[in-house]
Design a protein around this nucleic acid. Structure first.
Length: 435
RNA sequence: GGACCGGUAGUUCAAUUCGGUUAGAGCACCGGCCUGUCACGCCGGAAGUUGCGGGUUCGAGUCCCGUCCGGUCCGCCA
């Protein structure tokens, strides 16, 4: 029985099951809040109801409650629905935990060190706030699928065990693959591009792996990439427009179907203007420079301080919490990125900044075989090592481009969670391989 | 790879410039009370090898050396 169904069942007898999230004992009985598949439900258990041994009732037990649905008016935002409660006529224990919970799940906030939280993830995830964060992340992934499916994209699944990395460099995990060495995918980039020739528009929601030994609140070594690639674009602005469409759809879906979670998390969804501000990297450096007094000009990338400054500026001057930065230098972008014919040394690429953090990278790709082979060599790479990739170029690719959004980063910034790990069910970082 | 910071009860934190009696508090836990709670409330209780090893000292959670573990930020990136 869903929360919505309970809403319409006032006066009826229902049977529900769940885990005991918290018990508030009073002299006449207790309020017992159940954790269920789609929210917390308050039950009222008077002392002496059938099969109910209130003294034996413990947080963490799994129970089945039978009772009448009655109207209520509850103040606790973690409970959903809040306009009904179940007055138990019987309560049956299905399972007793073998040890008391190691973490206090009854309070409004989990007052834990992030490390304690993550070490105890099998339990801490049962807290309403942690659960709600994962639901928001799920909603963003769901919106990505729904929106792009409606836009004519085909969902693809590409291998995560690869012969070579898409981005090159040392940040790739090696794995033993029978009698050979293989690598964990850093990106579905090559496969997406091949997919463009098959379906014109493709997307994938999947894990990517980065072996960088970074230790910050915005990096994990396995994250979920919301990837897309689209053919027959006129410019990379088509890709940016698609992202705007997605963000608008995603915020709409969250507002309509994830309202209880958003309310509990006290989240403020960003407005997504129909057109987002966009500046070239050079201009971005100037803006950040004038705000901080530092000189960023000539830097090939944005540093984290600039990302924060630029977002502040974008909100104040243009009323947008999102800001595109374009035209990163060729040297800083992968070899498949198309150069701007009008601006030598610059690429037709973009990042999207949101609330102080880079959440997306994208751009137009090189589709011509000769151009791609030439740029590979200019990067000091051997085209022979990219044979199957270049096969697609030789067989012909339409003009195309795409992007990748870091799901955990997007989730974390929407919820204003400081550490990306808290937007992830079981984060992997340099120090953390379990749980 | 670099810079900074930290490790005290199950947990989150205290512990007075410069070292000083028996290392405290909130929450959780245990016992009792409370006719409707909303992070319930009230009374009581138990709970610690101060990460580990060594040193200085009459005396070390506090100072010094070593060691282990971790966090934040930077580089790099989503």
């Amino acid at each position: 029985m869903s929360a919505r169904d309970l809403d319409g069942a006032v006066g009826r007898e229902v049977r529900v099951h769940g885990a005991v999230q918290r018990i508030r004992r009073l002299s006449w009985g207790a309020f017992v809040v159940l954790r269920r598949h789609d929210g917390l439900l308050q039950c009222v258990v008077a002392a002496g109801v059938e099969a109910a041994d209130l003294d034996a009732l413990r947080e963490g037990q799994y129970v089945r409650v039978t009772g009448e649905v009655r109207q209520a008016s509850l103040k606790d935002a973690s409970i959903s629905p809040r306009n009904v409660e179940v007055h138990a006529s019987s309560i049956e224990c299905l399972l007793d935990p073998v040890e008391p919970l190691r973490i206090d799940l009854t309070k409004k906030v989990l007052d834990l060190h992030i490390d304690t939280n993550l070490d105890n993830r099998p339990v801490s995830l049962r807290h309403p706030v942690e659960r709600a964060r994962l639901r928001i992340s799920e909603g963003l992934g769901r919106a990505f699928r729904e929106y792009h499916s409606a836009q004519g994209f085909t969902e693809i699944r590409t291998p995560k065990i690869c012969f070579a990395g898409a981005e090159g460099g040392a940040n790739i995990f090696k794995v033993q693959y029978f009698d050979r060495e293989a690598f964990l995918a850093q990106s579905p980039q090559f496969y997406k591009q091949m997919g463009v020739a098959v379906f014109e528009r493709v997307f994938e929601v999947g894990p990517v792996f980065r072996a960088e030994p970074h230790q910050t609140s915005r990096h994990i070594n396995e994250y979920t990439s919301l990837d897309l690639e689209m053919g027959f674009i006129d410019s990379f602005h088509d890709v940016m427009a698609m992202e705007i469409g997605y963000l608008r759809a995603a915020m709409g879906l969250l507002a309509s179907e994830y309202a209880p979670e958003l309310e509990m998390l006290e989240a403020d969804l960003p407005e997504v203007p129909a057109a987002l501000p966009s500046v070239r990297l050079e201009e971005a450096h100037e803006i950040a420079g004038s705000m901080s007094g530092q000189d960023f000009s000539g830097e090939p990338d944005l540093d984290p301080e600039e990302e924060r400054l630029l977002c502040e500026h974008s909100l104040r001057e243009w009323g947008s919490e999102f800001l595109f930065v374009t035209h990163f230098p060729s040297s800083k972008r992968p070899f498949y990125t198309m150069d701007d014919p009008e601006r030598p040394g610059e690429t037709l690429s973009f990042d999207l900044l949101f609330r102080g953090l880079e959440i997306t990278t994208g751009g137009q790709r090189i589709h011509g075989y000769q151009e791609q082979a030439a740029k590979l060599m200019a990067f000091g790479l051997d085209p022979a090592g990219f044979e199957s990739y270049l096969m697609a170029h030789r067989a012909g690719l339409p003009p195309h481009g795409g992007l990748a959004i870091g799901l955990e980063r997007l989730t974390a910034r929407i919820l204003r969670v400081e550490n990306i790990r808290l937007a992830c069910m079981f984060p992997r970082d340099v120090k953390r391989l379990v749980p």
